[in-house]
Amino acid sequence: MTGTKRTAVTLVVITVLLSLVIGVVGIVGVTGLSDTAAELKQHIIVQLQIPLILTACLVGAALSTSGATLQVVLRNPLADPGIIGITSGASLVAALLLLLTPQWATAYLHYLLPLGCFIGALLSTFIIYRLARKLLGSSTAVILAGIAISTLSGAIIAWLYMFSDANALRNLTFWLMGSLYQTNWLILSVGGPLIAVAVALQLYFAGDLNKLYAGELAAKSSGVDVEKLTERALIVCAIAVGTAVSMAGSIAFVGLLVPHILRLIIGHNNRYLLPLSALSGASLLMLVALSSEMTRAITLPVSMVTATLGGPLLIWALAKGQIKG
């Protein structure tokens, strides 16, 4: 077991290092190091590409760690912040804010957005949790409830579409599809610390989360205050997911994809699973960002790539009976 773990940790660390190398090479490759307009290129690197990479890392870490935590707290291996409707709740509030914020307040939007997304994420988390408690033992019912919330949020956003001008319309597409290119240093300076704290808190819960595997009473009997832990974990997940959405819009499947594959390799111990989820999630989104940079495609929507990878995994997991209804 320890041997497997060591291999897994090494594997992930190698991935992270590799992504970093690719990142540096990628940036250099894309911009080149020619002498002409060197200043402009430096500007591109500092103002666009480094924030892009950092955003990818933070959002990836936030989504996959929250996915892993939510799966244990809701006792549902399918709980991905995207699938169960947490990100769409956050997106909805973000869209509302973008359309309804009065002119004088737009200067504060960078602070308002993470807060709004957090509230949206918290609301949908709360609804999902209440439903999950009622439907405990039925994984698919929770997923259906999540789809209901996503669809509803999507419908409301679509209505907003109809009543918005061209500029707002472009912003809304961003919230629906997810994009890493809307970021800048100001957004990072607000979102970075929030995500770092939220992810660190989830790692702190890891030992207690392990005890939840045997159910609520067993966890309580072994000294875990289940209600308190659930409440705290959900709030922390809502902070992480809400902030991630405020930075990069809705990105689905990362929270499902990363922990699921990691569990197959290293097992279910959250002390290893959560930190490795953070690292692997960061690496995954960074690779997605870089591949779109290197192919020079016109801003590849992140959700498109992650859904392409995650969709088949979800179908495979359902077919294999990894998840029972």
Partner: peptide, 25 residues
């Protein structure tokens, strides 16, 4: 650390091995 309880129902939808399951407790 003083008493323990075996409850009647315990649920786990996670595919973890017996060894790992026991190691957490």
């Amino acid at each position: 650390s003083v008493r323990t309880l075996l409850a009647q129902q315990s649920e786990s939808g996670f595919h973890l091995s017996v060894k790992e399951y026991l190691s957490f407790y």
